[in-house]
Nucleic acid binder design. Sequence first.
DNA 1: TCTGGGGTCCTAGGACCC
DNA 2: TCTGGGGTCCTAGGACCC
Length: 425
Amino acid sequence: MATISGPNTPTLAAQRTIFHVDMDAFFVSVEELFDPALKGKAVVVGGQRDERGVVSAASYEARKFGVHSAMPLRTAAKMCPHAIFVNGHPERYREYSGKAFGVLQHFSPKVEMASIDEAYLDMTGTERLHGPPLKAAHALHQFMKSETKLNCSIGIGTSRLIAKVCSDQAKPNGVLWIVPGQEASFLAPLSVRKIPGVGKVMEQKLNEIGIKKVGDLAKLDDVFLRKRFGEWGMALAGKSRGLDAGGYFDRDVAEDEGPKSVSHEHTFNNDTQDQEKLEAMLARLSEMVCRRLREHNLHARTVQLKLRYSDFSTITRAHSLEQPTQLDTVVAATARTLFRENWEKGRTVRLLGVQTSGFDEQPLQLDLLSQVQEDKVSKALSVADKMRDRFGENAVSLATGLKSGFREKTHENPASLPGKGKKKT
DNA sequence: TCTGGGGTCCTAGGACCC
DNA sequence: TCTGGGGTCCTAGGACCC
């Protein structure tokens, strides 16, 4: 292996080889598999041109016109009027993400999906099996294409951070390896914005003091950086010099710790101040959240309400429970109380959200009877979840004591059913 | 340009305890 | 009694990522 060691090379006992694999224009590419007519066209995934929402992904053709993800759909439509707008299909993306994961597992036992379309692989010590990094990367590239029909880009380095920045530089459909020891000189000419974790705000702050490139950052004094940007700023400077500085980007690959929060939120098609409608939405969001808690067998201690008004001002209000729960009724009641305590009555609401966190072991109850009862309720809800999977959302209606009042209310007033109310008979 | 939905991590202040 | 310091939990907000 051509190893060039400079003075900055960290003397670590074990030099790691990390791959970062990133699927190219993932959502768009998957949509093209289902509709080949989209190939080569300007495609925007995320919703229709006149809808409230933002771009999830844009094809390279659409990007030429300035369209990019997170841009409002209506803006994208103005910039690129001939673009084809398609709704996202999360199930399809999950399916293909799973396929990609399967491919990656052929190359290393340590695979960590960092999001739906990117993964880290610890390739340390796989040389005998897969050959040197570039050879392994090209094999991976080909295997990914033949198994999923999708392109990916691969970055290779001695840390997660380097690998991640590399895969971005390699796009589209490329491979880039930064030889150990060359980390600092690779990063130096790049804009600070290229560092994951440096967004609009941090970039602006750095620019204000004349820092534009990663190399500029490397020259700064640690004490100054710490004062100005905190612990993270210091770590960042370390990285800009090619050092392993701790934090997220240096933890081991595939240390799966499970989710830390589970949430659902909804932006209304039309802002509303109708209390019944708002509380019905809270109940529905709570149900969706609890359903996922049950799927993952999680019990949450903290329930958080998110409330966004028409002027986009947003508040969050949280409450921690005595006992962790996964019951719809408990989460919904907590969310509703928070809502009633904090909503400025009459003010028009744009978005509501329910988040749970503080996952804990199943509550130990002194009272055996109520423990048994709660287990029964949880089980009944799980069965109901499965029935809904098979027969649709409206297939099951549990005894009202177990549920929030949502369904009855919506029966009385079907008009209050929010957006997704497709009734299957 | 009128701004989704699902997350993670960090900061900072106050409560409370030792 | 005029007053320390560390640890942890809770809450609110915000930056950032895909």
